[in-house]
Amino acid sequence: MAHIKLDHISVDFPVFGAAKNLRLAIIDGLTGGKILPKSFSSKVLTVKSLEDLSLEIKSGDRVGLVGHNGAGKSTLLRVLAGVYLPTSGQVDIEGRITPLLNQTPGMENEDSGYENIITIGMLLGMSLVEITTKADEIIEFSGLGDYINLPLRTYSSGMQARLGFSICTALKPGILLLDEGIGAADAQFAEKASRRVKDMVERTEILVLASHSESMIESMCNRALLLHHGRLLEIGSVDHVMKAYKKVQGL
């Protein structure tokens, strides 16, 4: 059974300036960090992206993340994807995670579409055997036909997006993390893609979706949470959270 539990997590991003780097780290090391005035100390400036967030998601939940830009939606998705280990607090996640955050991590322009399928499939955690057996299905879904043997640089951006989407969605996920804007390419494929996403969402145990689109969240989610400046402001039914979101936006 897939489940997610976040316990008082915070994520702070260091902001490194070019000048405040190696030089100060060395000086700091040599001086024991005592001689320099406080403002010069190596304590790097940090930006709080998520603050003291606790959350429990159970199997069967479809959670929509809302909040304005910079509220921490993407960061939260990346914490769930295991990219960021929180600066403080604990994360407890069970289940196979499929992140659909970037459209195409690791695509190589000079390689053919087929080669890219194999490489990216392996990067996503499939074994060579596993991805080779899935390749035909992926090619068919992408609708790229003979283009699959041509180098990626000959593809239009829409075709690249189709390929990336088809590879990423070939696995049966336990926990599906979706950032909005995935799969949106040409109209015909977008329809096919949204059908596939819906199909995946049905098969998946947990869905976490970050989106600005109210209709998308209303149609796909049964819970929602509102992030505001890295804090969890509201959590509950989609209706309730959407109302709160509008209120925040109105201010």
Binding site: G82, L85, S88, Q90, V91, D92, E94, R96, L124, S127
Partner: peptide
């Protein structure tokens, strides 16, 4: 084994302390 995908062998994000988690990963 290497035949299995690494997602299967991934150490779970569990309730051990962050330091333990770090070393394990």
């Amino acid at each position: 084994g290497s035949r299995l995908s690494f997602a299967a062998g991934l150490p779970r994000l569990d309730r051990s302390t962050n330091a333990e988690q770090r070393i394990k990963r």
